[in-house]
């Protein structure tokens, strides 16, 4: 009873947020509303007991993508352009698509019913066998990193490919930034923000490491940890300046690290093949299959975290350095 009430309230708030997004024309406000939308989805995931997904949604959806879109707005400007076409064709397309989607949901099984295909297919096997086969408490991690290691590797490669795309299209403007020191009369120092963020950043990094290495036992893992770690550096960049961030972690250091993360993931698979197993079958990494699985999951989660953290920082650097350059010129 209470649960369905909470669900109804949350979904109403989701619908209200999306309506507000449609009605608004200020891109800045729309970005912030998308952050709200992601947070609401995260709460819904918590309510569905999908804590890992909620964590990812809160860290990636509400945190870093809001940040990245905001840094894009620095380049593009805050105001929506007036569309050149009339509203009727898009309206028809949207109504048709929505009708098809609604029609498609008629075939979907009932929400939460026990005989849903998702509860019949591979899930029972994972739930029954993963304590013996993988032996880590967080089943989500064992599915993500071991049973579905191929999929996760694909995701990491997608993140890496996004970085390559951004670097190829925009690139990071390093040289101009080195000359462009903020003079004190131009931009006043921010004592409160700088001191507070300096105090906060070590704890954010510590929390990222905790999330990274505690992913076997609780909600967390490489993706969330990487994003949180990148958030610490982004906070530093925002409260200090891009030059200070470049001094702290130069893009020249980050670029190879992003590739090394993917390499660690793929390399783990190669090592398992060399040791006589199949690709990404970690059981051969140690004498005991369970320990092998533990080592393998730790290794690939580290690769994921490294790639995600460095890619997020580099994309942020790329957008911000481009935006600052546009302002200077």
């Amino acid at each position: 009873m209470i649960e369905s009430l909470i669900n109804i309230i949350l979904f109403t708030m989701l619908a209200a947020t999306s309506l507000a997004v449609v009605r608004l024309h200020n891109l800045f406000a729309i970005t912030m509303l998308f952050g709200v939308y992601s947070l609401l989805s995260a709460v819904i995931f918590v309510e569905l007991d999908a804590v890992d997904v909620a964590f990812t949604e809160a860290a990636v959806g509400a945190g870093i993508s809001t940040m990245l879109i905001l840094s894009t707005l620095v380049i593009t400007g805050h105001h929506e352009k007036n569309p050149k076409h009339g509203p009727w064709l898009p309206l028809v397309v949207v109504i048709l698509t929505g009708a098809v989607l609604a029609w498609g949901t008629l075939d979907m099984p009932l929400f939460g019913s026990l005989d849903n295909p998702i509860h019949q297919h591979v899930a029972p096997r994972y739930i029954q066998d993963s304590p013996e086969e993988i032996g880590i408490p967080n089943m989500v991690t064992s599915v993500l990193a071991s049973y579905r290691g191929y999929d996760t590797m694909g995701e990491v490669v997608v993140v890496f490919a996004a970085l390559i795309g951004v670097l190829a299209l925009i690139g990071i403007n390093e040289k101009k930034c080195a000359k462009r020191q903020y003079s004190s009369d131009e931009r006043p120092p921010r004592p409160v923000l700088q001191v507070m963020s300096k105090l906060l950043i070590p704890y954010i990094m510590l929390f990222a490491l905790y999330v990274q290495f505690h992913g076997d036992f609780g909600p967390g893992g490489g993706f969330q940890a990487g994003v949180i770690f990148a958030a610490a550096i982004i906070l530093y960049t925002l409260t200090f300046s891009l030059d200070d961030a470049f001094d702290l972690i130069s893009p020249r250091v980050l670029r190879p690290l992003a590739a090394i993360g993917v390499l660690i993931y793929g390399g783990t698979g190669i090592v398992t093949m060399l040791l006589g197993g199949t690709f990404l079958n970690y059981s051969v990494l140690a004498g005991d299959p369970k320990s092998g699985q533990h080592y393998g999951i730790l290794a690939i989660e580290f690769g994921v975290g490294l790639t995600v953290a460095t890619v997020m920082m580099l994309i942020f650097y790329a957008f911000v350095s481009r935006g600052e350059k546009g302002k200077v010129e």
């Binding site: 921010r190 409160v192 507070m196 105090l199 906060l200």
Partner: peptide
């Protein structure tokens, strides 16, 4: 308590 007043400060600033 640590972050919210700082966020408010940043907003107003």
């Amino acid at each position: 308590w640590y972050t919210s007043p700082v966020a408010t400060h940043a907003l107003v600033r």
